[in-house]
């Protein structure tokens, strides 16, 4: 069973949840990231997601390992979709199970924030009047050394 996947087809949410079911768990949290129509008033028609797939899977695994080091007894599964996604489609599903609910919420939040930092996946926005690859939009996080700083990787 692969807990970390890049998927070309629609994600079955229940199948991601099923991967983290464990007898020790008292909670499972599920995050479902969906394609939003309006960003700062601008209407998105659809998105294209692209991944550097082998590295993206490795980085998702790394996030899972980080979570297990921080939250005892956590089980993690993440699937991220690539390809063309329409408004309301599911782009990412993160499931985390832990013995107690607070950890499940915190660890799940951690996972999505880390995805936005270190997993090589990009989205291209298509609008009525054009298209653009979205980076860290305002380039507020350039990496002058060429890679995320240790604090970015280990915080």
């Amino acid at each position: 069973m692969m807990n970390y996947e890049i998927a070309k087809d629609p994600i079955n949410v229940q199948s991601v949840i099923d991967k983290v079911v464990q007898r020790e768990a008292g909670a499972i949290t599920t995050f479902i990231g969906t394609v939003r129509e309006l960003t700062k008033g601008k209407k998105t028609l659809y998105l294209i997601y692209e991944a550097y797939e082998p590295m993206a899977v490795k980085k998702l695994e790394q996030i899972g390992t980080e979570i297990q080091e921080r939250w005892n007894g956590a089980e993690v599964a993440i699937t991220h979709r690539v390809g063309k996604l329409d408004i309301t489609d599911i782009a990412v599903v993160i499931a985390v199970s832990t013995p107690h609910r607070n950890d499940a919420y915190e660890a799940n939040r951690y996972a999505i924030e880390r995805i936005k930092e270190i997993v090589p996946i990009w989205k291209k926005e298509h609008w009525e009047d054009g298209q653009e690859w979205i980076g860290n939009q305002l380039e507020t996080v350039p990496y002058p050394t060429g890679k995320p700083e240790e604090k970015d990787l280990n915080e």
């Binding site: 990231g33 997601y49 991944a51 550097y52 590295m55 993206a56 991220h80 782009a91 990412v92 999505i112 995805i115 936005k116 930092e117 270190i118 997993v119 090589p120 996946i121 990009w122 989205k123 690859w133 979205i134 980076g135 860290n136 939009q137 380039e139 996080v141 350039p142 050394t145 060429g146 890679k147 995320p148 990787l153």
Partner: peptide, 23 residues
């Protein structure tokens, strides 16, 4: 991920990773 001062070896695959926007 590698730093800017890392030295490239025979057979290495180098990928340039623009700021990511997954999730």
């Amino acid at each position: 991920f590698s730093s800017n001062d890392e030295v490239i070896k025979e057979g290495d695959t180098i990928a340039f990773i623009p700021p990511v926007s997954g999730g």
